[in-house]
Design a protein around this nucleic acid. Structure first.
Length: 1135
RNA sequence: UGGCCUGUAGCUCAAUGAUUGGAGCAAGUGCCUUAUACGCACAAGGUUACCGGUUCGAGCCCGGUCAGGCCAACCA
């Protein structure tokens, strides 16, 4: 049965895509694309789980296009690529969404609504938009297994997380410590960074600020300071500024910048008027001293003088005072040395430290460091081990003590400040600011240099409107820093696209790594599987459900608890896990610590948790006891997400794999940029500039959208998204492809071409066929290289270029006649086979990027020829470049033909002679034998393309040609360097004889700066000069000249061609079939008669007329103009 | 505030350290067409964000500034 190639009515990508979707669904095309590769090597891909509690946006389409095209490409290259979808289901955004929906706050949870009920709401909310996500996934053509996704809230997922955490615990990588977090004493709760970023949280407030003076201790390190002092007052003070004087009793260090310049200044204390020597940053002298008072007035200075005399005694870098000691500023019982060393005998408080966070923007360039109340302070304090305070807790046990309690007031043991609130947290009417009192005390004691109200931006609790404190809270950490070097080393083995994300952004992040704070004090999330006795002395980390059940049963037996009731329908979430009581080694009850863990641990653990824990393997002691097919799916060959994931998913995947398994989690990581709106703004709901991916795909099709997203800019660049760009892709690329296919189908259906004939060897095909096939194979090679290098943008662009410039606008245009003229024989079959192969190959090349249309056309082609035994292009193999088909010389001369044609056409335009008007001659100066040979081989092509009768070659022999010479800068520059200019000048002086000599001998010797120099042909570029008296145009080494004289004979022929064109238009307007024979009558006209008579045969052949008659009158004829000559024609279809 | 990325025509993007910085889109004019989609040609459009440096030669390399973006922070 002869089956025809399907022809389309018009190009409607969305409709074609819907048909393909239905077909894929029906044939299980995705599942087959995986199962057909069952015995193939794996290419491992991990899907980063999106959160389904928000609508998908266009930016999701770009990263998913990237992921999909790589997976499809690798499948076509013969790998098996299984792709499991996943859902991120825990975390703050979900909780906040639910809180908003229910109109409650965090405080209400457990009061107005039970934790059980609240978590049930979260669980429901999480999958709210799952349908939409599934829908966009399918519509955009993202092939991923949606039927068996991993879901982070499921028990088996959480169990794997517990296993991983317990392994960390065993290795000593999971520990409890304090971290400095925003804390609201008024609300009695820690605040997340999210809460702190609520509008209105940062407010300008006026606080009492103080520059405190810390008295240096003289020792070896500080001796140089003391030596610089000339008079008898041998006291040195470090000046440090604070906007929170209440933190001064907690001071344990002073931090300076190692590279910052500091000075020791002799002056007077403005409050006590005592002579003092103070240290501060040189850049900040102006804040405290007036320039005119330098080096003057020391003798005259008296109490009450506004202007302080000052002089610089010495200058030094911060690094020089590292380790200097000073006297404690406000010593009391609670912050005594005893308190500091009780828990930490090695502590070295009251030292000068070096920190990279110190600036000279404000203050004194010396930072008062109280590790309990600042994250930077805490970090630098830990580094130098400056210690902390301790006291006796309510169990009578010695423990860490913070000098301000959780209600915001000083603890006992701080003298007159004990039990006073550090800010007015209780709205006391007669609240006396303790900060003022501290400042006053310092002033009196000669320990304050400047006390003033200072306005600054400070965070406030969004619920109580009270200032936030930075406060040390207990938290659980993963000790990533312990394996920092290993993580850095592993990162160097990852192939990052672009490189800068891996080396810069990610690499720097690893270099400056801090331990991973896992704790979250929320409700909906993975519970930290650590149980503790009340006194904190014993703890246990649970690593699996069976272990939990065993421990629970043990406790029921030992303590008489009723854990059993929770075990049947076990849910590893709050509040259920919190109700489980375990028993310690010593027989005490243990309760779970209240913390949940960072959701990023959830997603970073997906390589293992997506499969779940294999209890058999676990029992057998397998170090990687995860269910199959885990072993075939670790690590990932490839992942891709937005660059915003660098410190998110990319990091947590890397950290977990590196810490537990000493492996990378992924070998290649592509990070894509942001999608901005067309004016470059970030898309946000607030600005209303978000692009709805559903509408876009519905209107323009997923293929055009995907192609646009990939080819417009490299994935890692931020891209400005503009619907006009999709329209352009649709029109230009898909339109051209569609038309090329339609053209093929039109004639192949007429001739019944079905690729039944044997493949005609290349050497038996015409030059132009060999040329396009050579270009095609070159294209395949390039696309393969780009795809292997994760450069889909470049791949797409070369496909576009081939489709447009080579296949459609050169090959098909030049070969049109071969398809509709003549019998179905050798040349025609060559043309069909060639065009078919080009189409089929291009479709396969583009299939990963635009999977729908390529499959549709492929299936249409394959339905007739059956060349591939596959149901879908996505089951076929990717094309392999055949080097034997590539002929570089042929590609070069075709380029010459294209360039010459383009130049001749530009000349025609300049003199306004249309292409239908034949011209006699083109002159081409040829510089050498090779060039002449090349052009001769494509001479016929050029002649017909530009409608000229002959090409004449100008060589040196016929004396027409004049040559120009100039240096080849690239080659010569490397060799000569500074002599370039002299050589260029010398070449400018070259005569025709010099050039000829160089060409003949291959070398020529010059005198440059009185030194001999040998030049070779490849070190210069020789081009032709304009031809005197002719119209010329040139491009690179190619020059053409056109003979623009139009003889009467040429006019006559031009008229004939013009007439053909008009009649073809009439044929078309009349709706005749391509093969219809016609009869034509034309009215006589003096200027046309001769032409029609002379070219009668030619005209008839072109327009498929059996007869062309000249008649005097044609009342019913159509009026037309042939080169401004009015005539009438009458066309009838032959019966 | 820091780390990273980006800055080229009105717009979207090109340009191994090299001759005169190129395409497409948009706007204008003409041409070609048995594919009606495209294309070709002409003309126009540029202080390559700015300043300095290295180099015989810089859009490209180096330093700084400015602007936009992302991430992390906002601490004295």
């Amino acid at each position: 049965m002869a089956v025809n190639y399907r022809e389309f009515q018009k190009l409607n990508l969305p409709v074609i895509e819907q048909e393909m979707l239905a077909k894929w669904n029906e044939n299980q095309a995705f599942e087959k694309s995986v199962s057909l590769r069952n015995d193939a090597p794996s290419f491992v891909f991990y899907e980063g789980p999106p959160s389904a509690n928000g609508m998908p946006g266009i930016h999701h389409v770009i990263s998913r296009t990237l992921k999909d095209l790589v997976c499809r490409y690798k499948t076509m290259r013969g790998f098996q690529v299984s792709r499991k979808a996943g859902w991120d289901t825990h975390g703050l955004p979900i909780e906040l969404g639910v809180e908003k929906e229910l109109g409650i706050t965090k405080e209400d949870i457990g009061k107005k609504i039970s934790v059980e009920e609240y978590n049930r709401k979260c669980r429901e909310a999480v999958m709210r938009y799952k349908d939409k996500w599934d829908d966009i996934t399918k519509k955009m053509g993202y092939w991923v297994d949606l039927n068996e996704p991993y879901i982070t809230f499921e028990n088996n997922y959480i169990e794997t997380l517990w296993y991983l955490l317990s392994k960390m615990y065993e290795k000593g990588l999971l520990y409890e410590s304090v971290s400095i977090q925003p804390y609201s004493p008024a609300a009695g709760t820690g605040l997340s960074s999210h809460e702190l970023n609520q509008p209105g949280c940062y407010r300008n407030v006026k606080d009492t600020s103080a520059v405190a003076m810390f008295k240096a201790v003289k020792d070896e390190k500080s001796a140089f300071l003391f030596d610089a002092i000339k008079d008898q007052n041998k006291e040195v003070f470090f000046m440090a500024w604070t906007t929170t004087p209440w933190t001064l009793p907690s001071n344990l260090g002073l931090t300076v910048g190692g590279r910052i310049n500091y000075v020791l200044v002799q002056t007077f204390n403005p409050y006590t008027h005592l002579p003092v020597n103070v240290v501060l940053a040189k850049d900040l002298l102006g804040k405290y001293f007036k320039p005119e008072a330098e080096n003057t007035g020391f003798e005259e200075y008296k109490e009450g003088d506004k202007v302080l005399p000052w002089r610089i005694l010495t200058e030094f870098k911060g690094a020089q005072i590292e380790g200097c000691q000073y006297e404690q500023l406000l010593p009391y019982e609670a912050n005594s040395m005893e308190s500091i060393t009780a828990l930490n005998p090695d502590a070295k408080p009251f030292r000068v430290l070096i920190g990279d966070f110190v600036t000279t923007e404000d203050g004194t360039g010396i930072v008062h460091t109280a590790p309990d109340f600042g994250a930077d302070d805490f970090r630098v304090g830990s580094k130098y081990n400056i210690g902390g305070f301790s006291g006796i807790n309510k169990y009578g046990k010695l423990e860490k003590l913070v000098l301000v309690d959780r209600t915001g007031k000083f603890v006992e043991g701080l003298g007159e400040f004990s039990n006073r609130y550090v800010k007015n947290y209780k709205d006391e009417k007669d609240y006396v600011d303790v900060n003022v009192d501290i400042s006053v005390k310092l002033k009196k004691e000669n320990r304050a240099f400047k006390v003033e109200k200072y306005e600054h931006n400070y965070p406030h609790c969004w619920r109580t409107d009270k200032p936030v404190l930075y406060y040390p809270l207990d938290a659980w950490f993963i000790k990533t820093t312990a394996l920092k070097d290993r993580l850095v080393a592993l990162n160097k083995t990852i192939n990052w696209k672009p490189k800068s994300t891996g080396e810069g952004r990610f690499g720097n992040w690893l270099e400056n790594m801090v331990d991973w704070n896992l704790s979250r004090s929320r409700f909906w999330g993975t519970a930290l599987p650590v149980w503790k006795t009340e006194d904190g002395a014993e703890e246990k980390c649970i690593g699996s459900v069976p272990q939990l059940k065993e421990e629970a049963a043990k406790a029921d037996k030992a303590l008489g608890t009723n854990n059993a009731r929770l075990m049947n329908d076990l849910d590893l979430h709050k509040p259920y896990v919190d109700e489980i009581v375990l028993v310690s080694e010593s027989g005490k009850p243990m309760k779970r610590v209240p913390d949940l863990i960072d959701v990023w641990f959830d997603s970073g653990a997906m390589p293992y948790a997506q499969w779940g824990l294999d209890h058999e393997k676990l029992k057998a002691g397998d170090p990687m006891p995860f269910k199959e097919p885990f072993s075939k799916n670790f690590p990932a060959s490839f992942i891709a997400e937005g660059v915003d994931q660098t410190r998110g998913w990319f990091y947590t995947l890397h950290a977990i794999a590196g810490l537990l398994f000493d492996s990378v989690a992924y070998q290649t990581c592509v990070s894509n940029g942001l999608v901005l709106d067309k004016t470059g703004n970030k898309m946000s709901k607030r600005l209303g500039n978000v692009v709805d991916p559903f509408k876009t795909i519905e209107q323009y099709g997923a293929d055009a959208t995907r192609w646009y997203l990939i080819t417009n800019a490299s994935p890692w660049e931020n891209m400005k998204f503009d619907l006009e760009g999709i329209k352009e892709v649709q029109r230009k690329f898909f339109g051209t492809l569609y038309n090329t296919y339609q053209f093929f189908a039109l004639y192949a259906n007429v001739d019944g071409f079905a690729f039944k004939e044997a493949y005609i060897p290349l050497e038996q095909r015409p030059e132009i066929d060999r040329w396009i096939l050579s270009s095609l194979n070159t294209l395949v090679k390039k696309v393969t290289e780009y795809m292997d290098d994760y450069e889909p943008t470049q791949a797409g662009r070369v496909i576009e270029e081939f489709m447009d410039e080579h296949l459609s606008n050169w090959y098909v245009r030049l070969c049109r006649r071969r398809f509709w003229k003549g019998e179905y024989e050798h040349d025609k079959i060559c043309a069909y086979q060639t065009l078919y192969e080009c189409l089929e190959t291009v479709l396969k090349l583009m299939a990963p990027i635009s999977p729908f249309f390529s499959d549709a056309l492929f299936q249409n082609l394959n339905a007739v020829t059956g060349r591939h035994k596959v149901e879908s292009i996505h089951h076929a193999d990717f094309p392999v470049s055949n080097p034997a088909a590539v002929d570089a010389s042929l590609e070069e001369r075709m380029q010459l033909a294209q360039d010459s044609s383009s130049l001749v056409l530009s000349l025609r335009k300049r003199v306004n002679i249309k292409v239908r008007q034949p011209l006699q001659k083109v002159l081409i100066p040829v510089l050498n034998k090779h060039m002449k040979n090349q052009i001769e081989l494509v001479e016929d092509l050029i002649k017909s393309e530009v409608n000229v009768k002959e090409i004449e070659y100008l060589t040196e022999d016929n004396g027409f040609i004049k040559k120009k010479i100039k240096p080849n800068y690239t080659v010569l520059g490397k060799k000569l360097g500074g002599k370039m200019k002299a050589v260029a000048a010398a070449l400018a002086e070259f005569t025709q004889e010099d050039i000829a000599k160089l060409e003949k001998d291959g070398t020529i010797s010059l005198q440059i700066d009185n030194e001999p120099l040998i030049l070779q042909t490849n070190e210069v570029e020789i081009t032709s000069e304009d031809i005197p008296g002719w119209m010329v145009a040139n491009k690179d080494a190619l020059t053409v000249a056109l003979d623009v004289t139009v003889s009467p004979e040429l006019v006559s022929e031009g008229n004939a061609r013009e007439l053909v064109n008009r009649i073809q238009k009439i044929r078309k307007d009349s709706g005749f079939e391509l093969t219809d024979r016609i009869l034509v009558k034309v009215t006589e006209h003096q200027e046309l008669n001769q032409s029609i008579a002379q070219f009668n045969n030619y005209i008839c052949a072109e327009i498929l007329a059996d007869k062309l008659e000249l008649v005097p009158e044609l009342p019913d004829g159509t009026e037309i103009e042939v080169n401004d000559i009015p005539i009438k024609v009458f066309v009838t279809k032959k019966a």
